[in-house]
Amino acid sequence: MNITLRIWRQANASAEGRMVTYQVQDVSADMSFLEMLDLLNEDLTLKGEEPVAFDHDCREGICGMCGVVINGTAHGRGESPVPTTTCQLHMRSFEDGATIDVEPWRAGPFPVIKDLAVDRSAFDRIIQAGGFISANTGAAPEAHAAPVGKLQADRAFDAATCIGCGACVAACPNSSAMLFTAAKITHLAMLPQGQPERYSRIKTMIAVHDEEGFGGCTNIGECAEVCPKQIPFDTISQLNRDLIASLFKKDGK
């Protein structure tokens, strides 16, 4: 296959960026999207041009490091028949001769570092604000001390599969990180161990979410649509329920 790429090139956070067109030849349908970018970079390096910077690591869809917007959808969800990360999108999803637009996640709280790589440290700060259970090492009770009903456990698990890639923010017209935040809130709210900090956690996490500059949620649903791990959209309602309940609790005031 031969592919035409239009890639966002931006030297650093403060530089102006623009879309630049490249040709990639001899692309095989079995390649992953990132292997196709590798091929482009090998070619650029040999020509003496600067390779395209992009984040990636595990290349098996679990670490959450990769993520670019492909033809207008995060992780190329619009091209893929199934939910996917960028590294698990394969070139067989594209036609020979296709022109593909490749852009970084675009959101104020995710400033571009270079080309397609962005800074997602805001996510870590949301977790720091309460996305944990305070259990010091060694202080844990016996694991079977608190049974968890299977429904609760499964719902906690569904939410806990979030990989923190940021596709939800990239896809959201409001650049809201509500699905990311709601996934953690729901994960911990479903478990008995998460109850003591349940209503203080939500206040502090939402406060940091807003301080970081993410937009508000207007229930549009693009986030859940592009989520590679299919974090349920209804976790956002779980967050809202807990947030409303927290207004009537003294925790964390």
Binding site: F132, I133, A135, G138, A140, H144, A153, H187, L188
Partner: peptide, 22 residues
């Protein structure tokens, strides 16, 4: 054994049976 206790206390959602046990 302590590892499992610690992880459960942190909220790691291990697979469970219908009775709620691991």
């Amino acid at each position: 054994s302590n590892i499992i206790d610690q992880c459960v206390a942190q909220g790691v959602p291990f697979a469970r049976e219908y009775g709620g046990l691991l």
